[in-house]
Every structure is written in structure tokens, then in C-alpha cells.
Design a protein around this nucleic acid. Sequence first.
DNA 1: GCAAATATTCTTGTCGACAATCTGAATACA
DNA 2: TGTATTCAGATTGTCGACAAGAATATTTGC
Lengths: 248, 248
Amino acid sequence: MTSVDRPRQEEPEKMSETEANVRTERKRGSGAKVVYDLLRDEILDLALPPGSPIDEVQLAERFQMSRTPIREALVRLAGEGLITTLPNRSTMVSNIDFLNMHTFFDALVLMYRVTTRLAAQYHRPEDLEVIAARQQEFAAAVRAQDALAMIATNAALHLAIAEAGRNPYFTVLFSRLLDEGRRILRLYYQSYDDRLPQRFVEEHDEIIAVIAARDVDSADRIAREHAEQIVRQIQKMFVREDRLEVPL
Amino acid sequence: MTSVDRPRQEEPEKMSETEANVRTERKRGSGAKVVYDLLRDEILDLALPPGSPIDEVQLAERFQMSRTPIREALVRLAGEGLITTLPNRSTMVSNIDFLNMHTFFDALVLMYRVTTRLAAQYHRPEDLEVIAARQQEFAAAVRAQDALAMIATNAALHLAIAEAGRNPYFTVLFSRLLDEGRRILRLYYQSYDDRLPQRFVEEHDEIIAVIAARDVDSADRIAREHAEQIVRQIQKMFVREDRLEVPL
DNA sequence: GCAAATATTCTTGTCGACAATCTGAATACA
DNA sequence: TGTATTCAGATTGTCGACAAGAATATTTGC
């Protein structure tokens, strides 16, 4: 099938999967995924703050593709509640629900407990390697006092623990909660230059130890304390900056 | 910001949202939703059993619309894990994961407990009316020995309880779990004509009583026993029909 | 007769265009 | 002047068509 009258400059393709690269040429079926991943990151990093308008044609131009794959990405994001679509009108980044924050905390603490408990129960040797690596990255972020890296690596560590627990239902919910937490924390770390304390590194070490020891009850207890510690930390930020300028 | 009190001519529109109706005329923006709702029901009812091929053009003909809204519905269903898409190849109804069924049971029991506990804590008077109505419907299904109606009304009852708990994170997960349970149970009720015992009606009454009494600890305990009772019931079916013909 | 190469077919992925609906401004009217 | 109406602009929802990729059928070469 040598139907190559077209000068499709495949060539080296040295470039990594950057946006610029994707623009010029991209594999069939990858369009929506690229847009989804990038948009998701931008939303969670608050590069697109809550309330930001999402324009399909604008995105289509930016990614050099038609609106169809763009729309598919948006439908998926809407399914996760990250964007909100007003029928026939407009689409925008979903707001953070400050009024029902306590429901978020409840769910977060419970998932911290459950996933850690299951990890202690069902983990395999290779899981511990992944978890240890994530903890290294978190500790490095703490040493560097890089608040945003702390948020990301902390989420990655706890997600690794959750996956060692091997319950996809819990993992999916936990992942959503950690994402939402990423937005909330970033909102504060933008204005404040606060940092999660060294204490969290030590608590993580404790958690990893009881998981490795398969001590289920201790895992539950320590995870709970750790989670409640984090929640208190976040709540402290709230009262501290009570009259925060929040986009409704 | 005032809500939308716009006189949007809702008109009579006596006709119910049947498929035939939708075929002839449908409102802009409703296409994907209609397809989504109907396909979802058919999947959960096993009218479309696991492994069934999902053909876009076929659906487009059936619903008398183009493939675009069909695809949107499919993307949403895929997001919930109800269908599986093989890139560039085909789409089919997702399988039921019998190997990791225990993770499903773990999650189900925990959500039964948590949602009931929160309902005892946070319910409002009007919630109890809804819950009582659902319990009536469940009792009616038991009296009629209508197994499929029992499944549906049981799920509706527990979802009503979950909503009285007012934690959207838990409610969403629980809803997914009840959906998955609907598929699993229906798989068995197709071959067997077993029925959930009268005992469940009484247990529901107990649960409703402790919720109304705001007895959080009892709510947790009774919900747990109730859930484990149900899980045992399902597991009994499994061993009974061990060499079941399961579509992989 | 059988394996490899080729053609066909079938399904999904993408595209550009058009239509419907909403927003907001400009206009008409009391 | 204030309110209702109309019109223009913008954005989404839908459509039909085409292309790419994978599976299957067919042909070719030995």
C-alpha cells in the first residue's frame, strides 16, 4: 500500500511527547488522551483556577485538532466533576465546594485508614519497593522545601500504598480525593509559603513500617492519626485565611 | 445570583420519554443523555450481558441520530467502567470480575456501614419520609416475590439512606457498588428463582429505626450485620452454582 | 496443499460545516 | 426613564463524510 504521495516527514522523532510535538503529528486515538491529561493537570495545579472558561474552539486551535477529540476529553473531565457544563451555554472549571468541606475530610480520613489497612494486609514485596521510592521523593521535596512537590509526592506515596491494598473501588475514590486535595492545598500554597513539616516524613516511615510488618490494627490507627493531622493542618489554614478571596 | 425562573415554555409534553418519542423528535442536548440512560439500564439489567459488542453505527440507526451523541454516551459509560473500548477495534460491555469479588464485598460492606452511620448523624425529617417510602416499595417487592424488583428497590432504599448522610463522595461510590451488585445479582436471579427473605424487611426496619433515633453506633453495627448477611447470601449462590457458565 | 502476502471489510477516530440556543447589547416603545 | 423586544455574536450540539487501523477473506507463490 505505497500510497505515499504525501510528504509525511516522520523523520527522527527525537522530541519527547511535548505539546509542540503532538501538534505536528500524533497517533490516531491519542488526541483525546493528550488533551485530557494536560487539561487535568492544569486544573489540579490551578493553572486553570475554578471558574475558568473552557472554550472548545480555542482548545482546538491550541492543540491543532478538531473539536471532536477535544469534546471527548471534556466529557471525561466532566464525568470526574472537574469541569461543569452549562447546556448550550458554556463550560468552565468546577468550583471547590468550601461549604461541604467536612464531607471531603470525612472521606479522606476514611480512605487513608482503609487503604493503609488493606496495604498491610495484602501488599506484596514489590509493592514495598515502589512505596519506599515514593517516600524518598516526598522526603526530598520536604528537604527542598518545595511545597508543590510535597503535595504531589505525598499524593503519589499514598496512592502507591492504596494500590498495594488492591481494592480498585477504594483506590479510585482515594485517587479522586487526593486530586481534590491537590487543588485545595495549592490554593493555599499559592499565597502562603508554608510547608508540611518534617513530622510527616517520620509518620510516613511509621506507616511504611507497620505495613511491612503486616500489623493491620496499627496501620489503621497510625493512618488515622496521620490523616487527622493533615486535616487539622488544612483546617488551620482555613481559619488563618478566613476572608480569603474565593471565586464563587 | 437569582436562580432560573425563566418562563421556558415547558408546555404540556404529556408524552413520556420513551424511545419511540425520542426517535421522532428530541430536544437539543438530550441525545447523549437518552442513549446513556438507556444503555446503562440495559447493561445493568444484563439485557446487554458482559462481552456484548457495542456498535456505534447500529446504535446510531436505532436511536435515529448521528454517531456523535452516541459516542458521547459511550465515553461516559467507559468512564464508569461499564463498557470497555479496544482502541481502533471494538467496544463491548465490561465483564464482571469474579476473581476479585472479595474487593467488591469489602467496599460494599464498608459503604453500607458508613452511609448508614452518616444518615443517623445528619438526616433531616424529610429524608425519613423518602426512606420510609422506599422501604414500602421493597416490602411490596418481597411480598410479590419479585426478585428483580427486590434488587432494584433494595438499591433505591440504601441509596436514599446514603443521601440522607449527605456525603457525595460516599454516595457516588456506593451508587457504583450498588449498580455492580445489580449486575451480579441479576446474573443469578436469571437462572435461580431464589428470593431475598422476609428477614431483610425486618432488618431494614431496624436500620430505619436507629437512623431515626440518631443512634450512630447502633446504626453502624446493624448496617454491618445487614451487609454481611447479604454478602453471605451472595456467596452462598456462588458455591451453589460453582460451575456456572460465565461469559469471559 | 499450505504459508505468506495482499485485498477487502468493518469499526473506530477525526474532520469541517451547519444549526440551535443562550448572552448581551442595541433598539423600540410606553 | 424604564421595560420589553429584537438583533448580533458566541458557543455548544449534531451531522455526514472520510481516513486509519485491525481483523478477516482472498489471492499468490512455492
